[in-house]
């Protein structure tokens, strides 16, 4: 039976959409970029190598918590032993990636992006979606989107750790402080973008003050809410910039670790 825009009571129009603009371009770009990132991140997470070269560590492998980690890469010790699954050694990245991945998967902006680009739900505004049934975020697994705040809190811990990594990069390979290299700037930019992404998050906005009814009774929280609201306007931009930032930081560290790049020191 016809449903949606083809329901019998609605204006009888055979096209799914009458939009004449390139409505398909945005979801196509989103799809291409996210698939590219997923392929690269999967490759790197399973590569289990080329993620540390003194004093740089890839954000995909930080914190490195397994005894599998190369020497010097474990800032917080190695509480996990070497884990084998189906005869394969589990990469240290796979132990931690669930947290940043979960944060992005449940992010309100990325939800919009992938619901449109991957599930066509809908592909664009006023473009009919192909699926007959729709239950939104009311059932498992999409009910799990409500866990966003827990990933947000975990993400803050990761931001702190990656900021520490960036600070540690102000050393030279001999661990002497007071040096600045291209790698330092790359890790510093990565940490900054991640902080901007987290602080502009809708959950952050809610936590700092959005849940209040009475702003006038909580002037400090109102101020914080106002500041986060300014960042929140740019959340989409920070989401993409930080995604590129983390991929580039990993790529740079990998190239330095393999010897393809030389980490240039300014001083």
């Amino acid at each position: 039976m016809a449903n949606g825009v083809f329901s019998s009571s609605r204006a009888q129009i055979s096209e799914k959409t009458l939009r004449t603009d390139k409505w398909w371009l945005q979801p196509l770009i989103t799809f291409s970029v996210l698939v590219s990132f997923i392929i690269y991140a999967t490759f790197r997470a399973f590569e289990n190598g080329n993620y540390f070269v003194e004093p740089l560590i890839s954000p995909f492998y930080s914190p490195c918590l397994s005894t599998e980690c190369v020497q010097g890469a474990s800032l917080l010790g190695t509480p996990f032993g070497i884990i084998h699954i189906f005869g394969m050694t589990l990469s240290p990245a796979l132990i931690i990636l669930i947290f940043p991945l979960g944060f992005r998967m449940t992010c309100y902006y990325y939800r919009k992006a992938y619901y449109r680009a991957f599930w066509f739900s809908p592909p664009a505004c006023a473009v009919a979606e192909p699926k007959e049934k729709y239950t939104g975020e009311t059932r498992f697994p999409l009910l799990f989107q409500n866990a966003h705040r827990w990933f947000f809190y975990a993400g803050l811990v990761f931001n702190v750790l990656l900021t520490v990594d960036a600070i540690l990069a102000f050393r030279n390979p001999e661990k002497q402080w007071g040096h600045l290299s291209v790698g330092t700037l790359v890790l510093l930019a990565n940490a900054t973008f991640l902080w901007l992404y987290s602080l502009s998050c809708h959950t952050c906005r809610h936590t700092v003050g959005g849940r209040l009814r009475n702003f006038s009774k909580h002037p400090l929280r109102y101020k914080a809410w106002t500041l986060v609201s300014v960042l929140n306007h740019k959340h989409q931009n920070f989401a993409w910039i930080s995604l590129f930032g983390v991929a580039f930081a990993d790529f740079y560290v990998r190239q330095v670790a393999t010897g393809a790049f030389t980490n240039f020191y300014f001083f």
């Binding site: 309100y108 939800r111 919009k112 619901y115 449109r116 739900s121 809908p122 505004c125 006023a126 729709y134 239950t135 939104g136 975020e137 009311t138 999409l142 009910l143 809708h202 929140n232």
Partner: peptide
């Protein structure tokens, strides 16, 4: 009222002639 059915694809915000940031 079915708030859980909304998957925040922001089309409501895009078409609002009063530029109300409905989703955010």
């Amino acid at each position: 009222h079915g708030l859980g059915l909304c998957n925040i694809t922001k089309c409501c915000t895009e078409v609002c002639p009063e530029h109300i940031r409905i989703t955010d």
